[in-house]
Design a protein around this nucleic acid. Sequence first.
DNA 1: GTCTATAGCGCGATAGAC
DNA 2: GTCTATCGCGCTATAGAC
Lengths: 203, 203
Amino acid sequence: MAKVKKAELDLSTEEKIKEAASIVFTKKGYGNARTRDIAEEAGINLALLNYYFRSKEKLFQIVMAERIEKLFGVLAPILNDASTTLDEKLEKITENYVDMLLEHPDLPIFVLSEIRSNPEQLANRVQAPKILKESAFVKQLMERRSDINPLHFIINLLGMNLFPFVAKPVLQPILGSEDFYRQMMVQRKKLIPVWMKLMLDHG
Amino acid sequence: MAKVKKAELDLSTEEKIKEAASIVFTKKGYGNARTRDIAEEAGINLALLNYYFRSKEKLFQIVMAERIEKLFGVLAPILNDASTTLDEKLEKITENYVDMLLEHPDLPIFVLSEIRSNPEQLANRVQAPKILKESAFVKQLMERRSDINPLHFIINLLGMNLFPFVAKPVLQPILGSEDFYRQMMVQRKKLIPVWMKLMLDHG
DNA sequence: GTCTATAGCGCGATAGAC
DNA sequence: GTCTATCGCGCTATAGAC
């Protein structure tokens, strides 16, 4: 149930390398990451990295696909669930994001900045527009407020959830302690759905 | 008044290099940027870069300070202006940000991701908490709604403004054309202040 | 499969002519 | 000030022993 401290201990070598690569790439970005760092983090030799994966680039592709899935994969199931209300969806998305991002704060900025410098990463995954338009979420949204552009609403929802983590490097020093930062993010779990409902029910 | 197409043409060599460095660093990040790229962009030789600036690192520090100022410098004067109302401040901040970011879309993600991998960049600039707390903006905010945490409000305001640009690499392909993306950002100039006022007047 | 040793090359930086 | 040419390091990737 709860994760073990360092779960890598009894993983296969290949898994250990992927885990390590995920950590190092996410922290430093592709350009600043060194394959030596990854090997060290994985507790193996540099040569093994090239034995299992052909190159730094190829290893990165694999890690990147997983990170994109972790960041955005959570959305589709919730948006398409016809059995929950719109309000419940807002609460669920927010709770999932805040909890996940408190554990992986630099996931969003990693994914977004790497996609920027290498946009092809995303190319295959763009069935998004259709899926989105036909989702239960957008249907419920249009039903409640046909005059609201669903795209603006989704941008705002994602912004509310992701931005405080994207901006953590600048917010954290302003807020002071790590603890206070966490405390504010936890508060937002309740506040974000309230704010989003405001946009639905007024204006 | 309006900027010239390529204003670098009659700049000093030092200025040309700074301009070029700003472009290349902002586009690729420190790790992926090559001093050779910068020299080429500036139309000069690689050796000249090291003649004017001691190193890639030093050149980066200078560029970074300018970029941080461009991204956040616009805030302080507006927040501290006691002669404008709270609503006017919201409108002014939004208009300034959207206009500026439409011209420099990858400024936020550059600044935020570079600060993450090198937090000392920011260290000297953290007189922010005090300035913020004593600003006309926060005073007006507390006067209107003493039960709202100003920090959450500011996070939301910045999120509304900056996030769509931070997420441009993923939003743009979803939205389709560059033109449609721009069109939505222009719409937000009017919408963001409305949404922010909602949070003030309800909930 | 895992290691040591090293090839091969791109990078930042510099020497030195003009 | 500006150039060409080159040094030397650190990186990715590979050869080859075990």
